[in-house]
């Protein structure tokens, strides 16, 4: 067995573990759900508490983490245990995935993101790492399904549609800028992805807050829509900064490789489009009077552009440009 096939074995193993993690996360959400049925009372109690605090009760100010679960929601021991099992599995799956990326890198002696398959696996690993690092601290067990699911999807597509044998790079990619520009790009995409997942959850949560459903489910156990919105904003902000850097690093590299830093090649166009859409999101978020729901919709459109940039622009010949490194076809 050589390194490249070990890398693939680790990739399959991580998919198995992630699948288990996803089941465990679902199982965890199931344990959260019935709790809520009794917590309607708790929600009302929370309102009362707010009133009390508002009246200027002495004592320490409220220091609840803005990312914590919904106020008034007491997580059961069962739910907590299941959440922790799922997290452990996620850590293991992520470790295997990172190992797979590293082995692939060693096998080809270069940064392991030189074609679409490698970019997809490295990107999935970045999402896994980002989630693993942030999940425990922020009690994001509820988010697991929405993060591990997409990771699995990307891994599956990488292995079936995008798979490329370990091999040498095209001359244009042989540059240290590959390590810088592309890695920052997929780390940015990792943050965009988690922010997107939270954004979707936010919209559903907000809808259910405005029109409370007859039968509450796990959604009602999540942090308030305002807290979700803030979290998504923070993640999008980090991703936006990284994306700005990606854009600039790409321009510097383009100058070296193609002689001009900006030529409106389709990949450049879409990187720019993504940047402007997210810039619009940051703007609308900072504009008083634009409601956060509308801003979030802009961010979601931005993520659709991220997906288009990675799929259509790489694979469809309409978008033929100079970034022809997919390795597919």
């Amino acid at each position: 067995m050589n390194l490249a096939s070990n890398a693939n074995a680790a990739l399959y193993a991580s998919m198995i573990v992630y699948t288990l993690a996803m089941l465990a996360f679902t199982w965890h959400l199931a344990a959260r759900a019935p709790q809520v049925a009794d917590s309607k009372v708790a929600e009302r109690a929370e309102v009362r508490e707010d009133v009390l605090v508002g009246a200027g009760a002495p004592g320490t100010p409220e220091r609840r983490s803005p990312y914590a679960a919904a106020p008034g929601f007491e997580e059961s021991r069962e739910s907590r245990q299941r959440g922790n099992i799922a997290l452990m599995l996620t850590y293991l799956g992520t470790a295997l995935l990172v190992a797979s990326v590293l082995m692939r890198g060693l096998a080809v002696s270069r940064p392991p993101w030189g074609n679409m398959f490698e970019f997809a696996t490295a990107g999935a690993a970045a999402v896994g790492v980002a989630y693993s690092v942030l999940a425990k601290r922020n009690n994001w067990q509820w988010l697991g399904v929405f993060v591990v699911g997409p990771i699995l999807l990307v891994q599956g597509l990488a292995l079936t549609v995008l798979y490329t044998e370990a091999g040498e790079l095209m001359p244009a990619l042989k540059s240290y800028w590959l390590a810088i520009h592309v890695s920052v790009a997929f780390i940015a995409v990792a943050f965009f992805t988690i922010a997107f997942a939270i954004g979707i959850v936010y919209l559903v949560r907000l809808h259910r807050e405005e029109k409370p459903p007859a039968k509450p489910n796990f959604m009602e156990s999540l942090p308030s829509s305002a807290a979700l919105e803030r979290t998504a904003y923070t993640l999008n902000m980090v991703a936006f900064i990284l994306w700005t850097f990606t854009l600039i690093a790409g321009a510097i590299w383009a100058k070296q490789a193609w002689g001009a830093y900006w030529q409106w090649d389709p990949k450049e166009v879409w990187t720019f489009v993504i940047w402007t859409v997210y810039a619009a999101y940051m703007h609308s978020r900072a504009t008083a009077g634009v409601d956060h729901r509308k801003s979030m919709l802009i961010a979601l459109v931005g993520f659709v552009c991220v997906i288009i940039n990675f799929t259509l622009v790489n694979l469809v010949s309409t978008f033929v440009g100079m970034h022809n490194y997919s390795g597919v076809g």
Binding site: W264, P266, V269, W270, F272, V273, T276, V277, A279, A280, H283, S284, T287, V290, I298, C305, V313, F319, G321
Partner: peptide
């Protein structure tokens, strides 16, 4: 904000 969104839409046909 509107111009930013318009700019992103306007850039697409070029790709």
């Amino acid at each position: 904000l509107f111009l930013l969104l318009l700019l992103s839409v306007a850039a697409v046909p070029g790709s």
